[in-house]
């Protein structure tokens, strides 16, 4: 989910950069140097996982997984997503420099929100955890779509219809992301529950 370069207005680009910098600063502050190898390798695996194209009807979508990043990394989602987007820009030219801040905010802030809403639920018993994981996966994509739409509308109010189309286009992605996040959390609960946040505390 990207806004391409050259679409947004100056104020939107600047607020994106300010918010992304703030989120990244919080994320980095909460991050011990000891945990950097773990976050780095996880953010590499999110980068790779987001290249997976999942079939849906006649077409296919690539996974975004920002809800899952949020559930596992919390505030760490900001630096992890910023780094992943930078790598995507340099390796695939999916984006340039100016929209990096806005795109980070679009994907990372729903991730952090989902962490606070559902992070504590996914270590509970499966009948609570799996719906919570589904909600985190679906909601984070939905909110990312809404933020993307807002960025467009704040740039130009006539972008409203484009924004609506963009949000609608994300509805099927939402469902797929929710299902995959739920299944993936279920898998981790059985295979390596220590990866889920708060596991040691419970």
């Amino acid at each position: 989910m990207h806004i391409s370069e050259g679409v947004l207005s100056g104020p939107v680009l600047v607020s994106g950069i300010v918010l992304a910098a703030a989120g990244t600063a919080i994320g980095l502050k909460n991050l011990d140097y000891d945990r950097i190898p773990q976050i780095g390798i996880l953010s590499a695996s999110f980068f790779v996982a987001s290249l997976i194209h999942v079939p849906i009807g006649v077409s296919s979508v690539h996974l975004i997984l920002n809800g899952f990043v949020g559930l596992i990394l919390g505030w760490g989602a900001f630096p992890a997503i910023l780094v992943a987007l930078t790598l995507q820009a340099v390796l695939f030219q999916f984006g340039g420099i100016t929209a990096l801040g806005v795109n980070t905010v679009i994907m990372a802030s729903p991730a952090v929100l989902c962490y606070f809403l559902f992070g504590r639920l996914i270590i509970k018993k499966p009948s609570v955890a799996l719906p919570a994981a589904f909600a985190a996966g679906a909601l984070s994509v939905f909110l990312a779509g809404i933020l993307l739409g807002l960025a467009l509308v704040f740039t130009e109010k006539d972008f409203f219809k484009v924004s609506t189309i963009v949000v609608m286009a994300h509805l099927p992605v939402m469902a797929v992301e929710g299902v995959i996040t739920a299944l993936c959390v279920g898998f981790l609960k059985r295979v390596q529950p220590s990866m889920l946040p708060g596991y040691l505390r419970s």
Binding site: L63, L65, T181, A182, L183, F187, L188, V191
Partner: peptide, 8 residues
């Protein structure tokens, strides 16, 4: 999902 879980 399991493939990704295994990856993580």
């Amino acid at each position: 999902a399991y493939l990704m879980g295994m990856l993580f």
